[in-house]
Nucleic acid binder design. Structure first.
Lengths: 336, 336
DNA sequence: CTGAAAGCGCTAACAA
DNA sequence: TTGTTAGCGCTTTCAG
């Protein structure tokens, strides 16, 4: 069933059917009625591939999301969606698996959907100019930025927290409460990811306070999973390593660690304090409530759209926007 | 940049470029090299709208997901993805917002992407034949089924748990532990959703054991959110209503309730037992570990694909597959 | 207000 | 092995 069929059945030309479908005003009420009736009767749905193909412009902005399971993104997605909506854009969201390449996916969507711009939610911190060269519309990184100097500041936009500084802030909270044996729960310390940045913040905080960094206190999980964080912490504890506090680079991982600690008979915060970064919903519901540096999700979403809008409009230049977290005092830390 | 441009630059015809792009064997190594070089040099990416438009057949199966924030779906999605992959299909996933209509979205994708079949992950339990009439390829419901008799059994396929029976099973666990004042944490009892079904199972369990159903023990949240579950439970407790156990229709909601109970000074499971249904990851990590009836996610994903495969292949008829949960004994229930 | 016709970028006969 | 060409289903001039 195509508009050609609809046209034939309704006794009008395809262009008239097209006008009806797209709500063009210059169609007589009579024709409109007739066509609509036929469309309804036959459950006709226009083919988007064909529409996208012929349309030369659109009002679509792509949102590429890495790691959909990350409940941390849910609020940001909502915020981006409504901001985009207010700005008069249509959002086309694509969640990609961990194996897919977000840039390739974005480049593909850009061509298929005639995107005006792209927002990347989650992604790597070390893209090369060559990689990004496949994109020819403006884009902004949300929740991460180019932290390894592989890009020029004048060539990309981002909205993110200062991962290293925030991690330092988190660890400082622990130090301020008298902790010196502080473990770090990370994914890896050399993967050019957010994990590495937050790890560096941890190291800096310790050094600044004259605390020696003890590599045996670093718990490397390899991933950002709750389960792996649990296993890794469990293993570390089984090795007999002890500490009075843990800094986890993500709430998710902190929750995994919490269970490992509990199962080892270590009370949080009684025997061990715990702090992390993110502020995902469930972290507020568990017992003890997680003390965490929450990222301003709504704000990040809104700012990303603002920045992209200016880029699309031609006003405004590239900029790296840094937002700050705020400490949500849960009950997982204590003074010693 | 189109294949026409690539053809011109490479000095070959568009069909040759097309052949290279699609890895057809009948291209000389020389031409292939040349074309590939030009493609790389210009960062050429083919337009999928055009490809989808012209392709008359594909190996794509659509996966329509309602409620992406639901971490319960993550494992099922993985399982469906790999099963589809093994069966030689390509998966096209689309997450839809709570405002969008999943059937319309599916119908649209069916036409755009020439889908061979569709899997609905999450959805309503009372579709009408008319609604479904827009779909012309086989589909299967995953995690829900047509529970209100609006469809003929010979007209649809599904893989789900028996919501009412499983809810009954959950409540029976509570009753077996001596509980009689059992609250039910639900979304609504008359919305034709899974909530209503599980509510009915709750009612049945009570009745079968001669326990009067007390409407003041029903906590209606209106949604399936953690937050709303928390608020609703808090409110109920503030009204002075007391009970020795709670049956929550979903883990998510149970976690919300847990916090409300805790804040009211009610210990779980000391003062109040708690059981729910689903088996989401985090429910295993919290303290106390949630006692829940876990759905066999991997199995559900695999069976959905199997069923769809048979439908697509023309072998096999429609069927409603019921899988069963298993009790994961956490630590949120106790004998009284 | 309506229709005819020219493509959008690509694939797949068909011919060479 | 390669090139030519006819559409896929739709939107959009351009005439009428």
């Amino acid at each position: 069933m195509t508009i050609k069929d609809i046209a034939r059945i309704s006794g009008v030309a395809v262009s008239t059917v097209s006008r009806v479908i797209n709500n063009h005003p210059d169609v007589s009420a009579e024709s409109r009625e007739k066509v609509m009736a036929v469309i309804r009767e036959h459950n006709f749905i226009p083919n988007n591939s064909a529409r996208d193909l012929v349309r030369t412009k659109s009002d679509a902005v792509g949102l590429i999301v890495r790691g959909s399971q990350n409940t941390f993104f849910v609020d940001i997605i909502h915020s981006i969606e409504s901001a985009l909506d207010e700005a008069g854009y249509t959002m086309v969201m694509r969640q990609i698996g961990s194996n897919d390449n977000e840039i390739t996916c974005a480049a593909s969507m850009e061509r298929d959907k005639r995107l005006l711009g792209i927002i990347f939610l989650g992604g790597r911190s070390d893209y090369s100019p060559d990689e990004l060269a496949v994109l020819s519309v403006p884009y902004v990184f949300c929740t991460f930025t180019n932290s390894y100097g592989t890009l020029k500041n004048t060539n990309y936009s981002s909205v993110s927290i200062a991962d290293e500084a925030e991690a330092e802030k988190a660890v400082n909270e622990l130090i301020a409460r008298g902790h010196k044996q502080i473990a770090a729960l990370i994914s890896a310390s050399d993967d050019h990811s957010i994990s590495q940045l937050r790890y560096l913040g941890y190291v800096k905080a310790l050094k600044d306070h004259g605390i020696t960094v003890d590599d045996s206190l670093i718990i490397r999980c390899g991933t950002f999973n709750m389960k792996d964080a649990y296993e890794a912490t469990k293993k570390k504890l089984a090795e007999g390593v002890r500490f009075t506090a843990v800094f986890a680079i993500a709430d998710n991982m902190a929750i995994g660690a919490m269970r490992a600690l509990r199962e080892a008979g270590i009370d949080v915060p009684g025997d061990c304090s715990l702090i992390s970064i993110d502020g995902i919903e469930v972290s507020e519901y568990i017992d003890p409530m997680l003390s965490t540096l929450t990222q301003p999700m709504k704000e990040m979403g809104r700012k990303s759209v603002e920045q992209l809008s200016e880029l699309i409009g031609g006003t405004g230049r590239h900029s790296q926007i840094t937002v700050t977290t705020s400490l949500r005092e849960g009950a997982s830390m204590r003074q010693i």
